[in-house]
Write a protein that binds this DNA or RNA. Structure first.
Lengths: 101, 101
DNA sequence: CAAAAACTAAACCTCGTGGTTCACCATCAG
DNA sequence: CTGATGGTGAACCACGAGGTTTAGTTTTTG
């Protein structure tokens, strides 16, 4: 169900987290630092991303390390490509139909 | 700002609308028919998709025709691919770093 | 061991989203 | 012209999402 991924990426804060995480793993605190938000708020966002399968976290000692999951992005890319494919074949069908008339 | 597209696709009803629209344009009424929702509700969703640039609508006579915009999907696909690229080059960098040690 | 750091859990608040209904306008069919 | 059809605008409502603070808990560090 790909709409969970989309919903997770739909929030600007979460999108920013992802764009930062793409440069490498980070602790929750380091994710919160550049923002104006409180730690708990950021942690909630991370949890949402985790539930959507876009991020994994492990707790090492007292720090929670967050890293990106590539396969989730593949799922999103696949869905998008598939829709595009359906759309363009439909356009092709219309094209040949118009040729026939 | 791609998070608007993501937010628009994050709602299941809206995603369903898109998946139906990929098979060709449709009137607002025809979009509402297969759902349990009221027409105004569906129209609101269409408006959101329109604001996100994923859909265009024109009013012809008394019926509003909705159709998909391919370029918006290209934008989404591009963003996703770009993140994937950044992520994997970062993995490559880590790989060579590990080789050096 | 004591104190600081990093997170977590819980309680709480606000506001936007997703939905409704109803009244209304515009257009098409008879 | 009249009535039915398709859509629009406005008022309204409920609830969940995104945020806060505060009070713990668990590691690390001096």
């Amino acid at each position: 169900m790909v709409h969970h991924q989309f919903a997770a990426l739909g929030d600007p804060t979460r999108l920013a987290i992802v764009e930062r995480l793409v440069r490498g793993p980070s602790s929750a605190g380091d994710l919160a630092a550049p923002t104006t938000l409180s730690l708990p708020a950021v942690l909630k966002h991370v949890r949402v991303l985790e539930d959507a399968g876009l991020v994994t976290t492990v707790k090492r000692g007292r720090v929670r390390e967050c890293r990106l999951r590539e396969d989730a992005f593949v799922a999103v890319a696949t869905w998008t490509a598939q829709q595009q494919a359906l759309w363009s074949t439909r356009l092709d069908a219309l094209g040949t139909l118009l040729e026939d008339t």
